[in-house]
């Protein structure tokens, strides 16, 4: 579904990604784990067209999307739930969701998508007129996920979806991701919560200082001594 080859990304002179290669199989959950500053968010942003890589290629669903604009990439069906949720704080919950369906691929079916999101997140329906900025962190995360679904993506990249949420809310967010996976969505999961994300993932890669240092099945990595020592503190 997604194929990243030899991706280099620089911020000025600082190299954020160095020759990153990995693949995301159709219908899988692929976890990207690594310490703070390892380049996880940079990788997501480079794939989504929000940063321009210096070298390498990104292919999504047969299209070469390297260096394309973010709105073009979204319109191919590559959705993103970004770090920090990035909702529109002074706009209503309903407006936030409707804006998610502004990409051409989703515009026609916006009404049906909205119904689906209301069903999936009844709490958002209760608060449809409320400003997004006044929602709790967990509700904002649901709004961010719902808004992404409004764009009718075929693959979603989640960047730190559990960051700053209460344990109950974290549980709920992971349940939603599992449910989307069961419905056939291809998922990339970037998480600080390494144990949970490796448990969930079919496929995983470990990022260190902008390099992929390990790649394999989630369960294999979970059993790997180096991963256990570095990320799980075992």
């Amino acid at each position: 579904m997604l194929d990243v080859r030899d991706l280099d990304l620089f911020y000025g002179d600082a190299q954020a990604l160095a020759g990153v290669s990995f693949g995301v199989p159709l219908g899988s959950i692929t976890a990207i784990v690594g310490a703070n500053g390892a380049g996880k968010t940079s990788l997501i942003r480079a794939i989504a067209g929000m940063e321009t890589p210096r070298a390498g290629t990104v292919r999504f669903d047969g299209h070469d999307i390297t260096g394309r604009e973010s709105f073009e990439i979204c319109d191919l069906g590559l959705g993103q739930v970004a770090e920090g949720r990035q909702v529109f704080p002074t706009m209503s919950v309903e407006d936030n969701l409707e804006l998610g369906a502004m990409v051409p691929r989703a515009r026609k079916d916006a009404a049906a998508s909205l119904e689906r999101v209301w069903q999936m997140f009844p709490r958002l329906l209760e608060r449809r007129r409320q400003m997004a900025g006044t929602l709790s962190g967990g509700e904002q995360q649901m709004l961010a996920i719902g808004r992404c679904l409004m764009g009718q993506p075929r693959m979603i990249m989640f960047d730190e979806p559990s960051l700053g949420l209460s344990p109950a809310m974290v549980h709920e967010v992971f349940a939603i991701i599992r449910r989307l996976h069961e419905e056939g969505m291809t998922i990339v999961l970037v998480e600080q919560n390494v144990a949970v994300s490796l448990h969930m993932a079919d496929h995983a890669c470990v990022l260190e200082n902008g390099h992929v240092v390990m790649e394999g099945r989630g369960s294999d990595l979970l059993g790997d001594d180096r991963v256990r020592a570095a990320y799980l503190g075992l």
Binding site: Q86, M91, M102, C148, M150, G151
Partner: peptide, 25 residues
């Protein structure tokens, strides 16, 4: 209007606008 709302969205959260694929330019 949706265009009007999309413009407000850009002012409200530019990163968010790009995340959901609004054509900011």
């Amino acid at each position: 209007t949706m265009t009007g709302k999309a413009i407000r969205a850009c002012a409200d959260n530019l990163v968010g606008a790009r995340v959901i694929g609004l054509n900011v330019k």
